[in-house]
């Protein structure tokens, strides 16, 4: 291979053809309310850790529905499960429970992948 001093740039495009993933279907089965999210951002706005970390539940839900869990899951790491987002959600989603379910659903998937 020749070193030209530049390479192909990675694409930032989301491919919706690849968005249908079994992990998400499993998550939607145990946590059907995830489908109710209308991306208002109340959860992210009131998050205790939003100023200090990357946590943004609106973005996590969005990226999971787009099949981009690689971008979504790391955002959850700073969540302290305080429950403030649950209080503000206008669609009444139990977001605290949802966060736990996401971790569970995708942890299982990650373990299976490793095997």
């Amino acid at each position: 291979m020749i070193n030209f001093g530049f390479t192909l740039s990675p694409s930032s495009r989301i491919d919706l053809d690849k968005a249908n993933k079994p992990d998400f279907s499993r998550l939607a089965e145990i946590e059907p309310d995830i489908l109710k999210c209308m991306a208002c951002g109340s959860c992210a706005a009131s998050c205790s850790t939003v100023n200090f970390g990357k946590m943004n539940l609106r973005k996590v839900i969005l990226m999971l529905t787009r099949g981009e869990e690689k971008d979504a899951l790391p955002l959850l790491e700073t969540c302290v499960l305080c429950g403030k987002c649950t209080m503000v959600c206008p669609r009444g989603i139990n977001t605290r429970h949802l966060i736990i379910s996401i971790s569970e659903a995708y942890k299982k998937a990650q373990k299976t992948e490793r095997k």
Partner: peptide, 11 residues
């Protein structure tokens, strides 16, 4: 996808 801030493509 203006909420994700990324272009999307779908067939």
């Amino acid at each position: 996808d203006t909420l994700a801030g990324k272009p999307v493509k779908a067939t």
